[in-house]
Amino acid sequence: MIVEAGAAETVDSRIDPRPVLIVTGLVQEARIAAGPGMIVICSSSDPQQLRALLATLDPTTFRGVISFGVAGGLDPSLKSGDVVVATEVMSGDTRFLAASALNEEMIASAALKRRRIVRGGLAGVEEVIAAKACKAALRSMTGAAAVDMESHIAAAYAAKARIPFAALRVISDPAHRALPELAKSAVKPNGD
C-alpha cells in the first residue's frame, strides 16, 4: 500500500502559523531540532512510547511532521555523517511518500554545512538493526538507503492526519559497520 501526504502538501508555511512537529528518538536530537515554529517530541528510541506520545497530540495543531535524527546506513555508499532526506518510508507492505515541499523547506533551513545530502528511502523498524548481515538483508528487501525506528511511525501519524511528512536522518553507522550489542539497550527511558 502506498500512502501519500494528500492535499496538505500545498500548505504554504508563510501563511500557516502552526508549528511543525519534530519526532526524534534521542534527547540530543531533540535539542538540536528545537527552535521557533517547532514542537519536538522524543521517543527514547521506543516505538511504543512514540505511538503513545503521538496519541496525546491533536494533529490539526501541526502543519507537518518531520522525523529527525540518526539512522543506520543500508546503502553501502553512505558514510557516517551523510544526510538522507527521505523520498519515502517503508514499513512492511506500506510505503509512505514524503512531501516534497516540506523536504525542500527543511533542506533550505537546515544547517547542513558541507555534509553530503542523499535522497532515498528509509526503512522503519521496531528494534535496532545492529548486524551487517541484517542491514544487507533489509537493503535487499526494501532498497532503502537507511533505517531508523521513528520515521515509519511519524509518517503513519501524518498520513492519518493528512498533513505533510518529511524525514532527515544522519548516518551514524554505515552499512559495513556492525553496532555493538550494547547499542540495543544503551538508550535510557528518558532518551539519553
Rank of each mutant, 00 (worst) to 15 (best):
D148E: 02
I163N: 06
I153K: 08
R162Q: 12
P174N: 09
A154F: 01
R177V: 15
S185D: 12
R169A: 10
E150R: 03
A183M: 14
A186P: 07
A167L: 05
L168T: 10
R162W: 00
A155N: 02
E181R: 14
D173R: 09
F165W: 12
S151F: 02
D148I: 01
A166I: 02
K160V: 06
A178P: 10
F165S: 05
H176A: 14
E150N: 05
A183Y: 14
L179P: 08
A154M: 02
F165G: 06
L179S: 10
P164C: 07
E181T: 12
H152Q: 02
I153G: 07
E181I: 12
A159I: 03
P174Q: 08
V187E: 11
A183D: 13
K188Y: 12
K184C: 13
I153N: 08
V187F: 10
A166C: 08
D148Q: 03
I163R: 04
K188G: 08
A161S: 04
I171E: 13
Y157G: 01
A167Q: 08
L179M: 15
A175Y: 08
P174S: 13
I163Y: 05
A178V: 08
P164S: 06
A156S: 09
H176N: 15
E150L: 01
R169G: 11
V187Y: 10
S151G: 05
A186F: 15
V187I: 15
A166Y: 06
P164Y: 08
A175W: 07
R169W: 12
D148W: 00
A178G: 13
P180A: 05
Y157M: 02
V170W: 11
E150M: 05
K184Q: 15
A159M: 03
A166G: 11
K184P: 05
R169Y: 11
A166D: 06
H152Y: 06
A156Q: 08
A154E: 02
H152E: 01
A175E: 14
A155W: 03
P180G: 07
P180E: 07
F165Q: 05
L168K: 07
D148L: 00
A156V: 00
A156K: 01
A166T: 06
A159E: 04
M149E: 02
A166P: 04
A186K: 14
S151M: 02
L179D: 11
A159C: 04
A159G: 13
